[in-house]
Design a protein around this nucleic acid. Structure first.
Lengths: 352, 352
DNA sequence: TTGTATGCGTTATCAA
DNA sequence: TTGATAACGCATACAA
């Protein structure tokens, strides 16, 4: 047994790991031979190879990736930028990216921006040093186009989930079909007989949010749609619906379409607090199909987004170019969504 | 404007980024000076510095981290190994680690094992190359002690959430106080008058799971506790409760303590499917306080685990040693938990 | 079948 | 105030 550490004033410092030279010396061969035994890049006499392997094993030698990275000019690591990893959607997306990367022997470095532009900037600055071979960018918020564009020349970038205006035509884009999802809800509510709907959008600088509402209008028609701008959080849905109810006069909607599930939950809470029943008095539909959507009461009608597939596709697309050291041409990958009809929507009943 | 890419048979290949030599040449100074202008490690004449900065900016030069890493012998990146990033608990934990890392300018490389030992092994093998400066290990399953031990000499490791038998006394350990959590539930049920409880443990090779049950028994007493082994998934809770109900004879419990929330949800479903009401006929308590625990019907009584704090503490502890290039001495950090009394538990009512 | 020499891009040491 | 040189650890072109 070799000692793992050296004592030093009560503190133990990490030992210098064995290098290829140490192995070469102990096996009485050149570093070149050690390298080739391990890589298989050229034939080595079995006897020699065996001797080397035995030393490698004895010293616990593992090639230093830092040196390899410098030599190879690549790290086999891609970056993943998300706004909030505890958000189920981005967690699923991250898993997809991670799976795609793992399949090709790549690692994923996680950049969690918490929707903080400064934090995002710091991360992007960090990544400019070419630490990574590519990046999946899913910022979830209107991104700083400038910084991103400057990275585009350094390594491939795939945009996931959200369009980055101005970069759209320059690289890979993978999103769910937000527009089709909006259409599905629009059609569903119309079929249930609803004619007056309160539509709560997300932030209007997010293309995905705009697309959802646009799709809704396509299928439902513009007439009877009252649109208000929300913020993709529960409180927002609550306040907007509460405000709409307090407007005085008779209720001017029989259904609510919230551009994400959290806002839909807020909407339901506001309706119930106002003494209205969902879906008997008012129907509510959301978007995303987050985990709790199927477990709340009433179970939420919504549109399922293929978050995992978005991540996986973005990762796989990205890596197919990273691998060949090529700049990805512009491409769009729009993944299908599914309508989930549950218990929060029902045939219209005229307002009292 | 310089061209960002070179055309090559319709495919665009990435341009070689400017190196310190390019900058030095263009600014008519030595690479040493460029380095010092950027690092501030030694004084440079303002005139020279200005010339260098202007070239840096013009060429878009950023020091290659790969070369820095080799030179410095460190990467400013730590690894984070989790079983499932889409699990709310591990997502919170990851966020904590990521925050701690970001505060000190470190990146986090995400290793999602999906509870697959092979996948975990592949990751650990990858990381042996000292790509990372340290690791937070939260495998969520009984870990391969051997492989981990061999890494312990290469870089600091902090164990998060789950004890790794045999490594416990060798490095940092950060967990929630599972035992105290179990006690809180035991005491709560006892105070409600329950005397016969079905306790569903998690996998018995997980120390955290054993601790929860042990704590429960400490507070509740051993008498009246029927213990069965579950698997930390909803189905498991369902089946075990369904089986217990079908045992024939009168029901032998008035409350269920499931060692995690998912199993508790399964338990509730099984009870309701059997025509029993929760909590009127049977009380159910869980553990973890996952997001849906407070939104299901009935809202689940459970123990809140400080997942974020576990991650953040593990990350901060780890980095305090990484920073000084020291082997962390054994230390335990046991974070407090909180009882969340909600609607799924009620005073006992004798079985029919 | 194996070895020598070189270079990857940076920073540290030493010298001027 | 600045520069030349070595070194980090590896992989590879070239040589034998």
């Amino acid at each position: 047994m070799t000692r793992e550490q050296d004592e030093d004033g009560g503190r133990r410092r990490l030992r210098r790991p064995a290098s290829i030279k140490d192995v070469a010396a102990a096996a009485r061969v050149s570093p070149t031979t050690v390298s080739h035994v391990l890589s298989g890049n050229r034939p080595v006499a079995e006897e020699t190879a065996e001797r080397v392997r035995s030393v490698v094993s004895r010293l616990g030698y593992v090639p230093a990736s830092t040196a390899r990275n410098l030599q190879a000019g690549s790290t086999n690591v891609i970056g993943l930028l998300v706004p909030d990893i505890t958000n189920q959607f981005f967690a699923e997306l991250a898993k997809g990216v991670e799976d795609a990367a793992h399949d090709l022997g790549y690692g994923v470095i996680l950049c969690n921006t918490e929707f903080d532009p400064d934090r995002e900037d710091r991360y992007l600055e960090l990544l400019r040093g070419r630490f990574i071979d590519g990046m999946v960018y899913a910022s979830g918020s209107p991104p700083s186009r400038g910084r991103l564009a400057s990275l585009l020349g350094r390594f491939p970038i795939a945009l996931a989930d959200e369009v980055v205006p101005g970069l759209l035509e320059q690289t890979i884009l993978v999103t769910a079909d937000h527009r089709a999802g909006g259409r599905l809800i629009g059609q569903h509510l119309r079929e249930l007989g609803h004619r007056r709907v309160l539509a709560i959008s997300g932030p209007t600088d997010l293309v995905s949010s705009l697309e959802r509402i646009a799709g809704f209008r396509e299928a439902f028609g513009d007439a009877g749609v009252t649109e208000v701008e929300g913020a993709f959080v529960e409180r927002s849905g609550y306040h907007l619906v509460a405000a709409a109810l307090e407007d005085g006069g008779p209720r001017h909607f029989t259904a609510v379409f919230a551009a994400n599930d959290l806002m839909a939950l807020g909407a339901i809470a506001a309706l119930e607090d106002a003494g209205l029943r969902v879906p008997d008095d008012v129907s509510v539909a959301g978007f995303d199909d987050i985990m709790i959507a199927s477990r709340v009461h009433p179970r939420l009608t919504t549109v399922h987004q293929p978050a995992y597939d978005v991540g996986r596709t973005a990762g796989a697309q990205l890596l197919s170019y990273v691998h060949r050291d090529e700049v990805p041409p512009a491409s769009r990958h729009i993944l299908p969504v599914r309508l989930k009809v549950r218990a929060s929507t029902a045939p219209v009943r005229p307002p009292r």
